[in-house]
Design a protein around this nucleic acid. Sequence first.
DNA 1: CAGGTGTGTTGCGTTCCTTGCAATGGTCAT
DNA 2: ATGACCATTGCAAGGAACGCAACACACCTG
Lengths: 254, 254
Amino acid sequence: MSRTVDRALSILPLLAEGPADLGRVADRLGVHKSTALRLLRTLHEHGLVYRQSDQRYRLGARLFALAQEAMESLDVREIAHPHLVRLNETCGHTVHLAVHEDGEVLYIDKVDGRYPVRMYSRIGRPVAITVAAVAKLLLADLPEAERRAVAERLDYPMYTARSTPNAAAFLKELATVREQGWATDLGGHEESINCVAAPVRGADGRVVAAMSVSAPNVVVTADELLTLLPLVRRTADAISGEYSGRTPAKGTAE
Amino acid sequence: MSRTVDRALSILPLLAEGPADLGRVADRLGVHKSTALRLLRTLHEHGLVYRQSDQRYRLGARLFALAQEAMESLDVREIAHPHLVRLNETCGHTVHLAVHEDGEVLYIDKVDGRYPVRMYSRIGRPVAITVAAVAKLLLADLPEAERRAVAERLDYPMYTARSTPNAAAFLKELATVREQGWATDLGGHEESINCVAAPVRGADGRVVAAMSVSAPNVVVTADELLTLLPLVRRTADAISGEYSGRTPAKGTAE
DNA sequence: CAGGTGTGTTGCGTTCCTTGCAATGGTCAT
DNA sequence: ATGACCATTGCAAGGAACGCAACACACCTG
């Protein structure tokens, strides 16, 4: 909507790929160097980009601080965290918490399990939206029309043979998930990794977040992992209760 | 330098304080609502702000992803992490890693200790720059003129009775730190917490990062903590060696 | 139900800011 | 020294962002 701002902001993802010098930024933006320079300077003044000693530009410090503050204002995360830790201590597996935002699903918390899980998941990173159990839960809760719109818009990469192949299959899966109130990902992202997930709901019953437990095949089979479902659901419900103000949170004085 | 971009970027810290509606944003920026709307829309398109269900604006998802990627491109962090973990396992205390950027010092990694340390430190958060041991090391390495300039510009909040009171005292402390090649914070931030820190240096000898070990008085006295200094320095040196490419990093296959 | 107040949103003319060019200044090789 | 390459500056012209005012909409309130 605003060309100048639009260009300036386009610099950020560009720099996220790695440091770049002025010429490179100008080229990638398709603008004159002097233009790029002024944009970079403005970004620099706000601390969003940093000029390293070799004069190239990098993403800057303020970005961390902003992300940090944004993260903290997500109160689901604060509330859920101790529950995730407890669940992790009980079952030993990796636990994730994710939210939906503007057609993206992203992890906002993670507690690593005992067993190394080769998962490409990091806090703040977008989720493999077509296959992840948490994504299914979050999207399944959208109103019919929006769900359909999102499903049509997505790509369906075949990470494995069991990945969701297309929009139709995805919508069908979402219907199931919506029905049963929980979701799984059985080797749909990484061949050897299974997940089971449950929704966190707000006071109005809408799904505000989703949590999952992930474990590699070599440690527990999919069937064994499914036996954890009741525990996962109970944990999610506990978070829901606390989040919607029904349960008064015990001993979480921070 | 670019008014439009400048205004747009000013919205981000504003929203970091918490969600705000259009009117509020316009007021705080000192612009007309229609202007604020266009800026917010542009930010929204780039995913930097998110419009929540009550129509108010919040910081958005892309911010996390960007911060995440920025973090990953900091290769000191990658290299240092296993060393921090090892150090933490050895001594059991909380370990921090910090860098300097444009007059700010911020934590880029942290490994929590066994003993709960009531420290207001988070990854991505600015450090209490006038008292933190890591900050002293990073600033002590600046050229004389710049060091002086930064010192004059700072505020000197008295967190405790032992906080650095003013620029003169700070510069004196920096001189000492520069001389001895390590730094401490003995109750200068939190009455009951002591830290000891050592610098990580690049191939050219300049300080690129600093790491510290922090522990509460009730667990170890300041004197006891100081006995860890050789270990901390050795760890920092190991990171330095690996970072500057002298030591080939052992068994860190990702 | 009419009328008011608080929103967010749109169209448009004017102005000022952004743009790209060309020229300058620096730095590093050869 | 010389040339290549990069960042940086001043400037004139064109376009885009600005603020205004009017509209749309929801929510109270009498």
